[in-house]
Design a protein around this nucleic acid. Structure first.
Length: 573
RNA sequence: GGCGGAGUAGCCAAGGGGCAAGGCAAGGCUCUGCAAAAGCCUCAUUCGUGGGUUCGAGUCCCACCUCCGCCUCCA
């Protein structure tokens, strides 16, 4: 992939900066995870998918990425919820953490390199709090430990506010022993019955912000590259992280760059648990394929809000389907010529050959003599890379795929060799060379589709035929525990739907194995019917052919005739 | 009130000083036994409003209007 300098918007400096990693060739990222006490919704999916794409893109650029995401597995809401359900808090949060992972798996989100939990890093946190007290940045009050914002002059820099302004809006809870309204708890004394850990200040538990400082520093070291999360975390969470971390290390900056994603809204309102207006990932995956959900979320720039509604989802469905069908057709035509995993195609820029081909073409009828596919491929790659390198502009990156899809369909339509034989042109320019050229172009296009749409964005399934026909490997229905390492195959490339099929999480209750066996049978039966239909068509017995097609249609099977033979897919509602 | 962000075609959405990407929808057409799919063409003298800077402004400046986020848990 060409080395277009990578630039992105840094929340701290409020402008686009050129990204240079702390360690050459390696990128360290920490993204704030969730507080698992309920099912995940689209608002959780957005940052997960966005950072997943960031990670995959950086990897594709040749960087080695270390990605860490935390679980805040002990806090007020977890305790409250656990009390309501009558289960131990840590058991509850562990359960929902696993459910979160299952949902993200289903969305094709690659597993992070580590998922540290607060409850498993208490000593680390205690040590940090202790040191902050010793250094005079924190003080003890009635079993609580507070960070003193006045001891940290740079406080407010990330959120662009001065202390006095913050004070105006700050609320002080009754009974708190803060010296300054903006001071925040590093350690909270336990109330009777609450889970607690021993500390020099009595039994208690960590405050909300300290965990991320302790764990990110622990896993990634000081000055790590990118710290991210939803934009709603800027203040106070990330502001506080900076303060306590830099006060602790005495060696700023805690983080080199801050990266925040915009929120998902419904009816012009932020989607959130507390507002009760959320749609769970599970619910959405009942109706939509995971790759489409990614497409939907990535079709808006990451810093802008995404307005979610069933209508919005439905409206963007068709466009995605065009991409999918093109990808499907590309796979059909290329057959085994298209490797399961695209090779890095090296320098595929515009070559002298492509230029010459273009210049020497006769006539202007594009339908008969399409612009060399190689050129379109090179353009798509360049546009894609430029877009991604310029503040992760996924909408433009996706538009490059639409342009490529058009070029591919045009080439396909011009009459091209099928996978079976390279000479079988039905239209197009006469002569075997033209066919060969286009076949080569199609191969390049196929490889690029896989590289950009499947491997980096994850908006198209790795196996489009299986996806389109509703068959394929068993769905991931049970979450691997957090502690369990990701499967080996998922390390480098993540074919999104090789594992996660449309139903994914939603299908948790379905007998997966049986379903797969059945869909295999369906596939064979449909193929059989289509063979019969082809015979009928050859006899010009269109009544019979149409009957088969219509009946299949009633069963939800769409049949389409193409120059390369009939193809079918399941209809999506 | 303070801080941050947004208003671009019927809808979604890029762009961000040199005469408006992409997608959906709509209309016309081509291919096809028919259909579907695909392709071609049409679809914003105009970028919330009013001023200003400039040879030139969605793009910069000022004011105003509307909306959203944060300031409390939040992805």
């Amino acid at each position: 992939m060409p080395a277009e300098a990578l630039r992105f918007y840094d929340t701290l400096t409020r402008r686009k900066v050129e990204f240079v990693p702390r360690d050459p060739g390696r990128v360290s990222i920490y993204a704030c995870g969730v507080t698992p006490y309920d099912d995940s919704h689209l608002g959780h999916a957005r940052p997960a998918i966005f950072f997943d794409v960031v990670r995959r893109y950086l990897t594709a650029r040749g960087w080695q990425v270390r990605y860490v995401q935390n679980f805040t597995d002990i806090d007020d809401k977890i305790i409250a919820r656990a009390a309501k359900e009558g289960v131990p808090p840590l058991e509850l949060s562990a359960r929902y953490a696993d459910r979160y992972l299952a949902a993200m798996d289903a969305l094709g989100v690659k597993r992070a390199d580590a998922y540290p939990k607060v409850s498993e890093h208490i000593p680390l946190i205690l040590e940090m709090v202790q040191k902050l007290v010793e250094k005079g940045h924190a003080y003890v009050g009635g079993g609580d430990v507070y960070f003193s914002v006045e001891s940290f002059p740079a406080y407010g820099r990330l959120s662009g506010q001065r202390l006095e302004e913050i004070v105006a809006g700050a609320r002080v809870e009754v009974g708190e022993e803060k010296r300054h309204p903006a001071d925040f708890a590093l350690w909270k004394a336990a109330k009777p019955g609450e889970p607690a850990w021993e500390s020099p200040w009595g039994p208690g538990r960590p405050g909300w912000h300290i965990e991320c400082s302790a764990m990110s520093l622990h896993y990634l070291g000081n000055h790590f590259d990118i710290h991210g999360g939803g934009i709603d975390l800027v203040f106070p969470h990330h502001e506080n992280e900076i303060a306590q971390s830099e006060a602790y290390t005495g060696d700023p900056p805690f983080v080199r760059h801050w990266l925040h994603n915009g929120l998902v809204t419904t009816k012009a309102e932020k989607m959130s648990k507390s507002l009760g207006n959320f749609t769970t990932v599970e619910a959405i995956l009942k109706d939509f394929p995971p790759e489409f959900v990614r497409y939907f979320l990535l079709s808006v720039h990451y810093r802008s809000p995404v307005a979610f509604s069933p209508e919005a989802l439905a409206a963007s469905r068709r466009g995605w389907e065009r991409l999918l069908l093109t990808w499907y057709e590309l796979n059909r035509r290329l057959g085994t010529a298209l490797p399961g995993r695209a090779q890095r195609t090296g320098e595929t820029g515009e070559t002298r050959d492509t230029r010459e081909t273009r210049e020497t073409r006769e006539g202007d009828n594009l339908l008969v003599n399409p612009e060399p596919l190689e050129l379109s491929v090179a353009q798509a790659r360049e546009t894609f890379d430029r877009a991604m390198a310029d503040d992760w502009n996924t909408p433009v990156a996706i538009s490059a795929l639409f342009d490529l899809a058009r070029a591919v369909n045009l080439a396909l339509q011009a009459g091209l060799p099928t996978a079976a034989g390279a000479g079988a042109t039905t239209g197009g320019r006469p002569g075997p060379e033209a066919g060969d050229n286009v076949a080569a172009g199609l191969l390049l296009a196929g490889e690029l589709f896989r590289e950009l749409a499947v491997d980096i964005l994850g908006i198209l399934p790795g196996d489009p035929e299986a996806a389109v026909k509703g068959i394929g490997p068993a769905t991931v229905t049970t979450a691997r525990p957090v502690s369990e390492p990701a499967p080996a195959g998922a390390a480098g490339e993540a074919p999104v739907s090789a594992r996660a099929t449309p139903a994914a999480v939603a299908a948790a209750t379905a007998p997966a194995a049986a379903a797969v066996a059945e869909s295999g049978l369906v596939e064979q039966l449909v193929d059989l019917l289509l063979e019969v239909r082809e015979e009928a068509r050859r006899r010009r017995d269109f009544a019979q052919a149409d009957r088969i097609r219509n009946r299949l249609g009633e069963l939800g099977i769409v049949v389409e005739d193409t120059t390369a033979g009939p193809r079918w897919r399941r209809r999506r509602e």
